[in-house]
Write a protein that binds this DNA or RNA. Structure first.
Lengths: 152, 152
DNA sequence: GTGTATTGTTGGTCATACCAACGTTGGTCA
DNA sequence: TGACCAACGTTGGTATGACCAACAATACAC
């Protein structure tokens, strides 16, 4: 066999949306595999990191910070609560809310995850020297800032 | 109250994999909406573009070029065949294969899609001046080239 | 000829990202 | 005080993309 691959068409080869997607797919594969070593997914990591940085918060507030939908947040909190990585308690000051608090075990788990995620970033960005990495982060940040506020 | 939004945690804010994902999500939303105006999805566009550029090919070959899985290719070809945008015929020279050929209607549709996709790219990259766009494409291409050949 | 590979196809799985609707609760303001 | 409206957690969906395993038919190599 000798035609294992042919290049994708010109039209797609340099299409920014497609390149971005490919990179995201690669990143997700690498980060996903890394997190899987600890038995968690991206949502879990994002939630633990947010809790540790901002302290206890309601599910809705956590959803706003992480970009995770309210309904998906329910399942994510369920998962982590079952493992004792966070606690869900009714908010006495507003009975509509649950207060979500990270536990000691959660913090310890987060430390491990940080290490795994950092290694994954390095693998993802392997071909780029430091200056290019900063450059990429800058460009993507500008895209995120511009599109961030949902102006459709 | 007045904290409708808070920023995501520091840990996530500059995480390359996350920034890449956000950008990809934005791109997919924009491109997806554009293609939806013509009633198609990304796979459909990729397939039509590949057919037009390389001419008739088997489903497996098309899958290799586009990165679409064989099984997903079946459904994609089904969709487009039903609409008369391509034709599926058994290959007389290799009876395992189907030869997929784009039709005149397919070419016309592709012209429209090209226009929609181009506009979507522009919307996606709106905050970046031309030099930065080229820069971004370059960086992402280098990532794709490095990760392209599945070296896990 | 026998065994191996490829092809199209079926029928799944998983993760992410959404949306609509519901009952409960809080807050507004008339 | 009561009527509305908004926010919350929750359930139960949907769509898309990206996979994987298995199968019968066919081609190819030895």
């Amino acid at each position: 066999m000798d035609t294992p691959e042919g290049p994708p068409p010109q039209r797609l080869r340099t299409l920014p949306s497609r390149l971005t997607n490919q990179a995201a797919q690669t990143a997700n594969r690498i980060v996903g595999q890394a997190l899987a070593q600890a038995g968690v997914r991206r949502y879990h990591y994002a939630l633990l990191a947010t809790l540790e940085e901002y302290g206890p918060a309601s599910q809705a507030a956590l959803g706003r910070r992480t970009g995770i939908d309210r309904s998906d947040m329910v399942a994510t909190v369920n998962d982590l609560a079952e493992r004792g990585l966070l606690e869900r308690a009714p908010d006495p000051e507003d009975r509509r809310r649950n207060v979500i608090t990270i536990t000691g075990a959660g913090r310890r788990q987060l430390t491990d995850l940080d290490r795994l995620v950092a290694a994954a970033q390095d693998k993802f960005l392997a071909p780029l020297p430091e200056a290019d990495r900063r450059n990429l982060i800058d460009l993507l940040t500008r895209l995120a800032d511009h599109h961030g506020d949902r102006h459709d």
